[in-house]
Design a protein around this nucleic acid. Structure first.
Lengths: 192, 192, 192, 192
DNA sequence: GACTAATCGAGACGGTACGTCTTGTCTTCGT
DNA sequence: ACGAAGACAAGACGTACCGTCTCGATTAGTC
């Protein structure tokens, strides 16, 4: 016996307008200067419609992140068979955000969001180093016999992403050579 | 002809009261909920006295950080001669913040401050992995012949600290075993 | 050819639930703090069901007033034959509202409703000084030869009620003696 | 020894801007539609500056009333020596508000304000029938021997004002003849 | 019995205003 | 000149209601 719901159904139009407005304003203003009132105005939506479905700015940004609206879609891990080259390519891409105009700000804004909202934190880690990307690639390298079967894949993933975060926070200049050194340092103990 | 300044001189009492009030409230409320008005009230000082000397909340927190008022004082790098054991001890200490009640919040608050203020970012990196601590220890291990002379010391430092940040942001549970695996992974390629 | 309407008929249950909920909440909250949403909730009714039948809060309160749900039922004008005594008794009863705990608030709330809604205004005047009560009693006193036939009955009625309103608005303390003085003042010119 | 205050002093400019903005918007919108945000905007003032000094819209309107910004300044009681003529002139003036375009709305708005705020109620009574005006005039008529010394001056005053309020609430049409009838009815028992 | 309309409870929606909070500047007086 | 006290403009916060609309269920004539 189904417990029938009653009343109007959630408007998908409004939901998408809100998420898109959030993504657009996030890119422009960053997390700190992102105002719920502006999101509502930009989305052509009442503030209460946002608060009805998301408890906080953090949760809203988290959902944007999950929907892939905040970060470029290019973080697919390549798989050419050569694990070192693939990692370097991927990490270079990742560091690339920091080199773009405004890219550093976006990443720092995401970090700021993550400090406020646990979901953003988890999704940030996953988005950058998700099972589908880095960890998966590493374990397929294990299968291919390129890495030792007891290599600390998780730690290597986290270290790579962690360095990116630290560089974003400390406003360090990122050079192209850094990537190779870092990848080699991390792979050193994992190679066969 | 002396270029003597005139008028009252900056009150050291007020300065210390402000810094201490900031540190106290920071520990209680975190960075986001830290209000300048509360700091002024807590310090028994006028708001203008804060703004006269610090341009923003971020700068104020940065100075607290620099003065060692925000983080426990125990991050001195040990030097027993055994680089692996020393790194494990130090990293365990570092991860220890995350395991303490409220410690995770403090670290996340510092990260939040770093996203807003470049000084905090730089000082956070230095406080956790400063030349005087980890980098210095690593280079003395090189001198002692324990690590290769071309070992990527900077990258190892940053990876260690980066992992701590990532764990703080993603609210991952930190186990004691993680530290050894991480240190071994990072030292693998650096050992002689 | 019957012009009969089709479809479900208006629910009397709902209508009564709404009126009763309105009366109940009006007594508790007053007119200003009376929310349509609360009425709907209290009545177990959808908001639309209210708006389908009443155009506004004012109209709803007006109907409550008309149905006698808002004011005590005791404003029947006595008719003992002695016009002065009857008027004093009735006016005392009227002033009595102001002396009861909360009664002043109810009257003020009705005045507030009257400022917004013409119907409430008219019904308030009629409810307090309707032909069936004060004006009728006065004209029967004329018939009985107690009052002059050209006595300004309407003005006397309005003055009595007006004084009650003014006292309610100005939060004046009402004493028992006031009533006699007032009635005598108003009857003075009307007596034979 | 004076307990000297410190800090900036209240800005008279802001105070006047707020009161004038309130009076202007009150005349246009009435009490119900008078928004604190509009007042702040119209006055070029922060909302907090209003709330710092007045606890509510009612209190703000009360002060406007006290400063004579809401009602025309013409309610001075004439004193030609003839009490009946003076009373008729004054009451006609008073009823005049109701005959003006918008005047009825202003009076009803004031009544609405009075239902919310005790000060407005008291000041409304005083503004319309203050000791300086009607009650004073009546007692000088007593001195002049035109009225009996035991005439219920207070009740006559209140009845006059009360009728005006009732007419405003019930949207009754006010004719010129009404005034004379009313005044005569009230003076009847007071004359020598 | 199918069709058509109107009602109902539920509740999402775009809006407006609320009263509070914090920021960073400015003003006043005392030291 | 500096400090405390604190008023100020600006503007975001999250909440409360408004009146409208959408949804599916139900009810009552009409065909």
């Amino acid at each position: 016996m189904s417990e029938r719901r009653r009343g109007a159904v959630r408007s998908e139009t409004a939901r998408l307008a809100i998420l898109n407005a959030t993504a657009r304003l996030f890119a422009v203003s960053g997390y700190e200067n992102l105002a719920m009132e502006s999101i509502a105005a930009e989305a052509g939506v009442a503030k209460q419609t946002i608060y009805r479905w998301w408890p906080s700015k953090g949760a809203l940004v988290a959902e944007c992140l999950l929907e892939g609206l905040l970060l470029p879609e290019r973080f697919a891990m390549p798989d050419t068979g050569a694990i070192r080259a693939d990692l370097i390519a991927w990490t270079t891409e990742l560091f690339g955000i920091l080199r773009e105009p405004g890219g550093e700000g976006i990443l720092r804004s995401l970090i700021a969001a993550a400090t406020e909202n646990a979901d953003v934190g988890r999704r940030l880690r996953d988005a950058l180093g998700s099972p589908g990307s880095i960890a998966g690639r590493l374990s397929s390298a294990v299968d291919a016999g390129q890495l030792r079967s007891d290599a600390p894949l998780q730690e290597i993933s986290e270290a790579l992403v962690g360095v990116v975060l630290l560089r974003a926070l400390s406003r360090s200049i990122v050079t192209t050579g850094d990537v190779e050194v870092l990848v080699d340092a991390l792979l050193a103990g994992a190679k066969r």
